[in-house]
């Protein structure tokens, strides 16, 4: 050991003293650091922050993107999602969920549901203030509390929401059966179902005294969990670098498509085209091509294949079920039925 006895101790004390004074300033020693007076003030979170999932709607809550395809339910590792598909009064299934429960005491916030959703319907929220006064029923988030608008999504995750909007060309049209009157929702639920202005998290600037702040906070806490909450974002918008294109799924385990269709490409494989246009583009092609053109062109795998795979399976007679195309709805089903009947396969 070099130096006088106690040298190590004195050096250590000098470092401690320097850090003690330095802890009052930020890294560059320029600005004074203050404590965030939580819960009146909250620290901004980075954009990618994820906690629990929520469902996105475009415009009004009944225009939710979710089609109850149950992909998220299947892929969720701790199995915390519970979906029941809605049906119209005649019993015909609809492309929307009647029940969508997420047990947030089980949810591990992995984000896999948001990654696999073919419709960009479920995304990760950044709200972590979800404490309730009960352990079981209170910690299950039901459909009304999960629905948040696309504007909210833009607010919490601007870059991601922009990218999703750019790739989403097909907006789900509300199916006619959805006009069936739903039971009158209670006031807390009604607050969510009608698009409300987003609530701020910090008290307004004109509330100054501690008592007023506390009163505001109490009122604010009483509505927690019933409406969309705005989280203050980091002020720096993350520079958008062009994201690599999402890889197209590899060809499903069905026989390779006939050479003729590949030679001409697949011009109908664009989810922005409507059915008539797609059938027009495919009109002189093989049966499998025409079947594929009738589908929704999303490659969402809700049917268990991708669009090309499902078309091949139908053409080869591997499956006869024409109802599997969830986003395609009735028009796809009818077109597939017609085509297969003409070809004598049904």
């Amino acid at each position: 050991m070099n130096g006088f006895p106690g040298k190590g101790l004195l050096e250590g004390l000098a470092v401690t003293a320097k850090n003690f004074i330095g802890s009052y300033f930020d890294d560059n020693r320029k600005e004074r650091l203050f404590t965030y007076q939580y819960p009146e003030e909250r620290m901004p979170l980075p954009e990618n922050s994820r906690t629990f999932p929520f469902l996105v709607y475009d415009g009004t809550p009944d225009q939710l993107r979710c089609t109850a395809c149950k992909v998220c339910e299947t892929e969720c590792p701790p199995q915390c999602i519970y979906i029941v598909r809605d049906s119209d009064p005649n019993g015909k299934p609809l492309q929307r969920p009647k029940v969508f429960d997420i047990d947030i005491s089980v949810c591990m916030q992995c984000g896999i549901c948001a990654e696999v959703c073919p419709f960009d319907a479920i995304k990760m929220d950044c709200d972590f203030e979800r404490s309730q006064h009960g352990r079981f029923e209170e910690l299950v988030a039901h459909l009304p509390s999960l629905l948040k608008s696309n504007d909210y999504y833009h607010h919490i995750k601007p870059t991601e929401a922009d990218r999703v909007d750019a790739t989403r060309k097909r907006v789900k049209k509300p199916s006619p059966a959805a006009a069936a009157p739903a039971p009158t929702p209670g006031p807390a639920v009604a607050a969510v179902l009608s698009p409300t202005p987003l609530k701020p998290m910090s008290p307004p600037a004109d509330i100054l005294t501690e008592d007023e702040k506390r009163a505001w906070l109490k009122g604010y806490q009483s509505i927690l969990g019933t409406g969309p909450i705005v989280w203050p974002l980091t002020t720096k918008k993350i520079a958008t670098t062009p994201q690599p294109p999402t890889p197209a799924p590899a060809a499903a385990a069905v026989a390779t498509p006939p050479a003729s269709s590949l030679a001409g490409g697949e011009p109908w494989h664009d989810s922005g085209l409507d059915l008539a246009k797609r059938m027009e583009l495919a009109k002189d092609r093989s049966l499998a091509d025409r079947l594929m053109a009738a589908m929704a062109q999303l490659d969402c795998q809700a049917c268990g294949y991708d669009c090309r795979g499902y078309a091949n399976a139908l053409a080869a007679g591997v499956t006869r079920d024409v109802t599997l195309c969830a986003p395609g709805e009735d028009e796809t089903k009818n077109t597939l039925e017609t085509l297969l009947k003409e070809a004598g396969k049904l």
């Binding site: 050991m1 106690g6 190590g8 250590g12």
Partner: peptide, 9 residues
């Protein structure tokens, strides 16, 4: 500097 040369350590 804080701790590695510290005699106690």
């Amino acid at each position: 500097k804080l701790i590695t040369g510290n005699e106690v350590l």
